[in-house]
């Protein structure tokens, strides 16, 4: 029964929180541009509108299935990601499992975009995967360092260790270099400027989303909610002590997303190879330094 509640509620909470994060993202962006920004229910309006489109264009079975895989992959990831009050199945699969589950929706999306037969989409996926290769290297270093420090890959344990020791045992305090390197990687994971090479509306017509219409696009909007939430929670879990209670937890998650949004507006867009070079140079270098410190301890 408890499990059933977890399976239903954890993705639902993730989705609703994600809607707020999207709203925050758009509002903050508007404020930086000295605009008013969208109304409170804008993320909901967008998703409902897209699902309520009266004609829905499909490019074949794989295009449909990719949306299913996309949603399914993120829902799975939410169930394996512990949050205050909900453990889900975090004991049955660990941090490594979560990282790889998070790649399932990406693969699903990539397959669907490929089957649309639009080269803009294929280029978008090519860039998205290249970006993934770029930011996952510092992220992997940060995660390895963190697990070395905590001595476990069990996410529940990682949160417990940080909460029992108070703020001094938070990842950001015990391994600041890894936290910085990891954050830069997370910024790349959000896919915002200067790393939004795979959306690039002016170059490749929003890349993976080029042929997405109606509920296909709506599912991508839902995915954006999940994505912001999952990445934010993952960072909070690893470096910011997880959630003691919901208000504090949400503030932390929002802070992770907020910092990223706040800096993104001042950048243009890097070229793909620049992203790779930058990610492999600075965040990876910082994180490797942090890892060396952790190993030396």
């Amino acid at each position: 029964m408890r499990l059933l509640a977890d399976i239903v509620l954890m993705p639902l909470i993730a989705f609703i929180t994600g809607l707020f994060l999207v709203l925050m993202y758009r509002r903050v962006r508007a404020k930086i541009e000295r605009r008013v920004g969208p109304p409170f229910f804008q993320p909901v309006y967008d998703i409902v509108k897209l699902f309520a489109k009266k004609t829905q264009i499909s490019h074949g079975v794989m295009h449909d299935l990719s949306i299913v895989l996309l949603l399914g992959g993120y829902i799975t990831a939410e169930i394996f990601l512990p949050v205050p009050g909900f453990k889900g199945l975090a004991e049955e699969g660990d941090l490594l499992t979560l990282i790889y589950i998070m790649m399932v929706p990406m693969l699903g999306l990539a397959l669907g975009v490929g089957s649309c037969a639009n080269p803009n989409g294929s280029i978008g996926i090519s860039r998205a995967l290249t970006a993934m290769l770029a930011y996952d290297v510092p992220l992997a270093v940060a995660i390895i360092g963190a697990t070395m420090t905590y001595g476990t890959t069990n996410l529940v344990e990682i949160v417990r260790i940080q909460q029992e020791g108070g703020m001094a045992t938070w990842g950001i305090a015990t391994m600041p270099l890894l936290a910085i390197g990891g954050y830069l990687a997370v910024h790349g994971m959000f896919g915002k400027e200067p790393f939004e090479i795979y959306i690039a509306p002016a170059e490749i017509a929003t890349g993976p989303m080029v042929e997405m219409s109606g509920k296909y696009m709506g599912a991508l909007f839902i995915m954006q909610c999940f994505q912001l939430y999952t990445i934010g929670v993952l960072y909070v879990t690893l470096f910011l002590g997880g959630g003691e209670n919901w208000p504090l937890f949400l503030i932390k998650v929002a802070a992770v997303v907020f910092i990223s949004v706040a800096v993104t507006n001042v950048y243009g867009r890097y070229r793909t190879d620049k992203v790779v070079r930058w990610m492999w140079k600075w965040p990876t270098g910082i994180a490797l330094l942090g890892l060396a410190l952790v190993m030396a301890k």
Partner: peptide, 22 residues
């Protein structure tokens, strides 16, 4: 679209391809 009149406050956003647009 931009700061002067800000269409986004009534939910209007520019989009790139006809597939996505209303």
């Amino acid at each position: 679209i931009t700061s002067r009149f800000d269409m986004e406050r009534v939910g209007i956003t520019p989009m790139v391809t006809p597939r996505q647009a209303d």
